[in-house]
Design a protein around this nucleic acid. Structure first.
Length: 999
RNA sequence: GCUCGAGUGGUGGAAUUGGUAGACACGUUGGACUUAAAAUCCAAUGGACAUUAGUCCGUAUGGGUUCAAGUCCCAUCUCGAGUACCA
């Protein structure tokens, strides 16, 4: 029997599907007290089903998680290993705009293709739990969570989200003066009586300032080309992540999520989860906590003007006496008010100039110092001296208060600004020279020229400064976060509709029992002519409060029928809780049952890419914490352990085309391609010095080039052209015919091979050049898993992807190497079966057999626990090589080996398991138990080193003492030869490890 | 600029607490089998010198600690990722 992977893999994939082998059992509370299996939840980041399908890089993480899931099943766990689709998104919508095809159709087609590809790789997913974020059954719960957020506020005293009713009760009882909540800034302070006197609309307006999701006029990142708002993490280097379009700031009324309420908890709880440090670091940076003080400066009132105050945030309140000016962002709201008539022209000109520059230009051009003096002065809170107020674009409107107290001696930016505009730079540091640059080293700081702070180091000075500021009512200690509230509205069609209608301009939630509010049909997927989002095109998009359903727009009367929200939710909405929904995905009455969430709790292992560090993974943590506060989920964090798989890059193949001048260049009928060898060695010289080649060239080209014309000068250069990697074999040799068929414009091209021969049949080989690049269609280096499965089988693919290198590392794909793991599987097969059938016997295993097996059990179990899958593949290879050499036929050994291999290569393992006589799936067969007694050695081959260099090996019994070993070694003939009569200074003996002789 | 990670044969990579550097594969070369090819099997394969025995060099570079360093420490270089006027 040969290893017929095609039949085997199809057979077992069918078996698993029919028998629902990987269906996670649901907890049955009636069985409480009985022996219920412990749970284990292994999750992959669900994919967005793009039209391009999967390439070999995509399944890497899925294979790793699948191995882990299968391993856990062998260990007796009830494993939840689901898969689904993050199926709302921009590509389907853009395709709809171009073709008119409904995004739901595109999405469905793509999902089917994904499923087909995934099925071929033999994953142990529980498909009965599949979720799709674009299904109304699913986004019903996305809308439900939105309503919960709307009905909640964040209480800083209890440090958690609470129902809005508790806030209303507080307002009714005592007003809002003492409410310690996370809210908008500058909230009207009112008493209980005032609250009761407000009309409903006013009350709603006020409550909106406290809700965890709220409507606010915010400055957003507007992308005109995409016609939508983008979140900060969707902008890379000032342009949109998708398409690279420019982004401008624009004021719009938008839904926002008060994620800032959770900033500290999101930061603190990073310590409680086992996630990669770089990912934690980037979340930490993104949250950007800085500790310092907020300081209030009074603007010195001039004549008719009323007094104003400027709040600044600083991390260096200890340097308060070093302030020699203040700088406001050009967009700061006080700029217009405080600017003196004399300076008005200059300031306005400057503001205009800055507004013209895009965000990107401002970022790119950090070096140029610019600004303008407002003519106004602020009063120093301690010295009462006047401080000039400037504006400058190095101060960002979006961070802190958009204003800074400038301390040029302690901050390089302030220093540069002061130098540029000839503002004094007072020195408030003891023994520091600031004539060249600012001094920013906190640890070495000793304050001087600063009244009550003199002589103090940074920390003490900071505390005292804050204390004194509080005493005079000019400031207080403050913690500032970079993390902004997240804009939650998108002007798109293909997303979750909000369960929101508007009465008198105020948002109203539709009662949860009427969910889902499904997406309406539209004729065009573009924004309307009046600039409204695509849902503005819908005709049936109004809410009837009588019938509690969506009705035709014509019925809107603003009494019982009201307009619905036109925005949709962003991509991250649906992906922020899907891991919980998998626990009970078909529940129509609740997001999940109590039994399900109490049993499954949280994700034990989450595998996915690091690109989601500050997007999905931050928002999902936020929603989890909110749901935790509301008592919906039992865990504060949704994933205990997370692993980022690395990217698989492509290995592009290149051919090298001679670019010729003059007459040669004009006539493109004949092209010349040179082998990589020629290019790397200096092709022009070789071509023209090797008479043979020139002669052959001329003969081939015939009349086209005559002797005189063809010279070295005719060659302009060499063009690198991508060749499709499928035309290249394991030895980097190009299939020239295939290349010519693919690129007919080169059908008359001449190929010069490795040895300088003009290729004609088998006389020479054409070797392509190789380069590692991102896997992409345009580089013709995409390898699809389907073609690999077709040629080598899913088990070979799975093993090879793991064998490539450490899971978390990025590594290049090269199809050539797969013959290694494929060959291994054939060898494995032959250990069990040959042409005559079964080879295994009931024979007792030999000592060597047992040693090999248990060595393998130990290593493989350790490797899986450490996610070191690449090394366990080589361990399998070593094991099979050894057992083959030992001619092992023992069924006992081979059964255990089949189980060991099965997480990695499940199809062949199932088949061998059946051949061994089993009638049930190998999936839950207990993992072999490691027995250390088989590995006990009685002797060790010691490496004997002289001055640290290994010279020879010596087999010695392990029970020898140090002294005995030394005595034996020193009398050994090779030792004597090495020493050549010298007396060793020292002999180091580490029993069981090494012997080192010094001297 | 800052933060983090990494640099080992022709290639992917191994070396888990400092203890035989290059496991396991790919590729290459040679051989067996075959009419031939494929498949399979065997052998060699870090570099230099040497007939052999063997010697020297070698984990980005330069130092250091140690009986012993790919592994620890210091400095430098290169590459990758993230982030960026964050007050």
């Amino acid at each position: 029997m040969n290893y017929d992977f095609k039949t085997i893999e199809a057979k077992w994939q069918k078996y698993w599907a029919e028998n629902q082998t990987f269906k996670a059992s649901s907890p049955d509370p009636s069985k409480e007290g009985e022996n219920i299996k412990p749970k284990f939840y292994v999750l992959d980041m669900f994919p967005y089903p793009s039209g391009a399908g999967l390439h070999v890089g995509h399944p890497l993480g899925y294979i790793a998680s699948d191995i882990y899931a299968r391993y856990k099943r062998h260990q007796g766990f009830n494993v939840l290993h689901p898969m689904g689709y993050d199926s709302f998104g921009l590509p389907a919508e853009q395709y709809a705009i171009q073709t008119g095809q409904h995004p739901a159709i595109t999405t469905k087609t793509n999902i089917n293709r994904y499923r087909e590809q995934l099925d071929k790789i033999g994953f142990s997913f529980d498909w009965s739990r599949e979720v799709r974020t674009s299904n109304p059954d699913y986004y019903k719960w996305t809308q439900w969570i939105f309503i919960q957020l709307f009905n909640s506020w964040y209480n800083n005293d209890t440090n958690k989200a609470e129902d809005i009713s508790t806030l209303i009760a507080l307002f009714e009882k005592e007003g809002n003066a003492n409410v310690n909540a996370v809210s908008d800034e500058d909230i009207l302070v009112f008493t209980a009586d005032e609250w009761s006197a407000f009309d409903t609309k006013k009350q709603q307006e006020l409550l909106l300032q406290y809700r965890l999701t709220y409507l606010a006029e915010t400055e957003v990142n507007w992308c005109p080309a995409l016609g939508t708002v983008l979140a900060n993490d969707e902008i890379i280097n000032g342009v949109s992540e998708r398409g690279g379009h420019s982004v401008i700031r624009k004021k719009m009324t938008q839904w926002s999520m008060r994620i800032s309420a959770y900033a500290q908890r999101l930061l603190d709880d990073l310590n409680t989860i086992d996630w990669p440090q770089p990912l934690k670091d980037s979340q930490t940076n993104w949250i950007g906590r800085s500790q310092g003080a907020s300081v209030t400066f009074n603007v010195i009132a001039s004549e008719a003007k009323q007094s104003h105050q400027i709040d600044v945030f600083t991390t260096r309140p200890d340097t308060i006496f070093g302030v020699s000016f203040m700088t406001l962002a050009p967009e700061h709201e006080l700029v217009a008010t405080i600017t003196t008539p004399e300076q008005k022209q200059e300031v306005e000109a400057y503001i205009q100039a800055t507004a013209k520059r895009s965000e990107r230009e401002r970022m790119a051009d950090v070096k140029t110092i610019s600004g303008a003096f407002t003519g106004a002065y602020a009063e120093h809170p301690f010295t009462k001296e006047p401080i000039p107020i400037w504006i400058g674009d190095y101060v960002l409107a979006g961070y802190g208060t958009g204003a800074v107290m400038s301390v040029p001696c302690g901050d390089q930016r302030d220093y540069d600004f002061a130098k540029h505009f000839n503002i004094p730079i007072p020195n408030i540091f003891e023994g520091v020279d600031i004539s060249e640059e600012a001094f920013a080293d906190k640890d070495k700081t000793v304050i001087a020229n600063s009244d009550f702070l003199n002589g103090l180091p940074y920390k003490k000075a900071m505390k005292l400064a804050i204390y004194e500021l509080e005493k005079i009512g000019h400031g207080k200690g403050k913690i500032n976060y970079r993390l902004r509230d997240a804009v939650f509205s998108r002007q798109r069609y293909w997303g979750e509709p909000f369960p929101v209608y508007y009465v008198d301009g105020m948002p109203q939630m539709i009662d949860a029992k009427h969910l889902p509010i499904t997406l309406p049909e539209v004729e065009k997927y573009l924004p309307t002519e009046t600039g409204e989002p695509p849902l503005g095109n819908a005709n049936v998009w109004a809410w009837c409060t009588k019938e509690n359903k969506v009705v035709d727009n014509s019925e809107i009367n603003n009494e019982t029928v009201f307009p619905l929200e036109l925005n949709t939710m962003p991509g991250w909405a649906g992906s922020s809780f899907y891991f919980n929904r998998y626990m009970d995905p078909n529940n129509t009455d609740a997001i999940f049952s109590d039994d399900a969430i109490n049993y499954w709790q949280d994700v034990d292992l989450y595998i996915g890419g690091s690109e989601h560090a500050t997007g999905h993974l931050l928002y999902a943590r936020f929603w989890q914490k909110f749901l935790f506060d509301k008592g919906v989920v039992p865990k504060n964090e949704f994933a205990k352990k997370l692993i980022n798989q690395g990217m698989i890059t492509g290995t592009s193949a290149f051919v090298y085309r001679l670019v010729l001048t003059g007459n040669f260049g004009k006539n493109q009928e004949v092209e010349t391609f040179h082998s990589e060898f020629y290019v790397s060695k200096g092709y022009t010289d070789l071509v023209l010095t090797d008479g043979n080649v020139v002669k052959k060239l001329k003969k081939q080209i015939g009349e086209l080039y005559n002797d005189e014309k063809f010279s070295k000068d005719s060659i302009l250069g060499v063009a690198q052209i991508h060749a499709d990697v499928s035309f290249v074999n394991a030895s980097d040799e190009l299939d020239i015919e295939a290349f010519k068929n693919w690129r007919p414009e080169y059908k008359n091209a001449i190929f010069i091979g490795e040895n300088g021969e003009v290729i004609d049949g088998d006389n020479d080989k054409y070797i392509v050049g190789r380069e590692v690049e991102k896997m992409s269609k345009s580089k013709y280096n995409v390898v699809s898993p389907d073609s690999i499965c077709e040629e080598y089988g899913a088990d070979s693919l799975r093993l090879y992807e793991m064998f490539l290198g450490p899971l978390e590392q990025s590594k290049p794909w090269n199809t050539a190497g797969i013959t290694g793991t494929h060959g291994f599987l054939k060898k494995l097969w032959r250990l069990y079966l040959d042409d005559d059938g079964a080879k295994f016997t009931e024979a007792a295993p030999t000592k060597d057999n047992l040693k090999t097996l248990h060595k393998t059990i130990k290593k493989v179990a350790e490797d899986i626990e450490n996610f070191s899958f690449n090394t366990s593949v080589s361990t399998f290879m070593i094991c099979v090589n050894e057992l083959s050499t030992q001619k092992c036929t023992s069924k006992e050994i081979l059964e255990a080996l089949a189980i060991l291999v099965s997480p990695y290569a499940p199809h062949i393992a199932e088949e061998l398991w059946q051949q061994l006589g089993h009638t049930t799936s190998i999936a839950t067969a207990p993992f072999p138990k490691f027995d250390a007694s088989h590995l006990v050695e009685s002797s060790k081959e010691y490496p004997v080193s002289f001055n640290g260099k290994m010279r020879f090996k010596l087999e010695l019994p392990l029970d020898l003492s140090k002294e005995e070993i030394e005595a034996t070694v020193m009398t050994h003939e090779k030792t004597i030869a090495q020493l050549q009569g010298r007396e060793p200074k020292k002999v180091i003996v580490v029993p069981g490890k090494i012997i080192n002789i010094v001297g």
